[in-house]
Amino acid sequence: MKARFLISRFDLQLDTTPRLQEYSVDVPKGSTVLECLNIIKWTQDGTLTFRMSCRSAICGSCAMRLNGHAKLACKTQLSDVLIDGAVTVEPLGNFKVIKDLVVDMEPFWASLKRVKPWLKPDESVEYERERLQSIEGYKKIEDASTCILCASCYSDCNVLSVDERFLGPATLAKAQRFVYDSRDCDAEERLEYLGGANGVWDCTHCAECSTRCPTDAKPLERITELKAASMAHRIHGNNGARHVLAFRESIPGKYPGTGGGMINENYIPLRSVGIFNISGLLDLIPVGLRMFMRGKQPPMMPHYIKKFPEIRKMFSRFKEYLK
């Protein structure tokens, strides 16, 4: 089968920006993209450079962007990504390119270390045997434990593309693995850190990470679990948690001007930033002014919905959950 490969080439010593080079290859049926790249490297152009190792989707070396989205080259059948007989192959996004498809992974490893990704057990207990963990307890950390640190999620994360300080999906999935581990006794402190700047609340739920994830780690689901754990532990001293509380207070109506099943959009930003957070509130002024100029400011007094049984039902279940 003939296929065309448009591959991003970049050599620090020769190029200022990456260029696409086209290769035409005759490949056997059933080939993976990695097998094709090796055919090119070994028979056409030895200078083509990429990382690889296990070729069985467990080591995480060969993540790259195929037609614009991150995938493991070793577990992707060429036929699944060919469009009109061609595929575009580029290095992972959100990283600095070193050469061709090889990127500088250091920021990824550095991010991982920020969440102290190791078990912090209760050291005061002496055990003869293994610590016990129920099957349900194992299930809570099983998905996160399948992460192979391939950085596909990091590549396609929309938050990282505008803010490189964000901890990123893989790191947060790794953090979930410890927060939810029945053997770890540092959940509180971990959640305090994760709830802070650049943590779980910076995620915008675009779901790119889970879509690109080649395993069951599915970072967005893990991030959601971290947020739930954060609220359950009543770690409320951050904008993200206050934002959640603001919704909870605004819709059923805890304070004057709120309630009626509607979101009070004047109340939410104030509550999220913190009523006594003067500098934070001042930061809101330009946004508020721009909204006002464009006629987008919410009404001062919200309309009320007469009957909102569905919303009531949601909130009563939410209350039960919090118990």
């Binding site: 190791w118 078990l119 057990p121 055990y127 293994e130 610590r131 016990l132 963990q133 129920s134 099957i135 307890g137 194992y138 950390i141 099983e142 434990s145 693995r177 410890f178 581990d181 053997r183 770890d184």
Partner: peptide, 10 residues
């Protein structure tokens, strides 16, 4: 296990 390795459980 004590170092934190995830094992399947009985």
């Amino acid at each position: 296990e004590r170092l934190g390795c995830v094992f399947s459980r009985d």
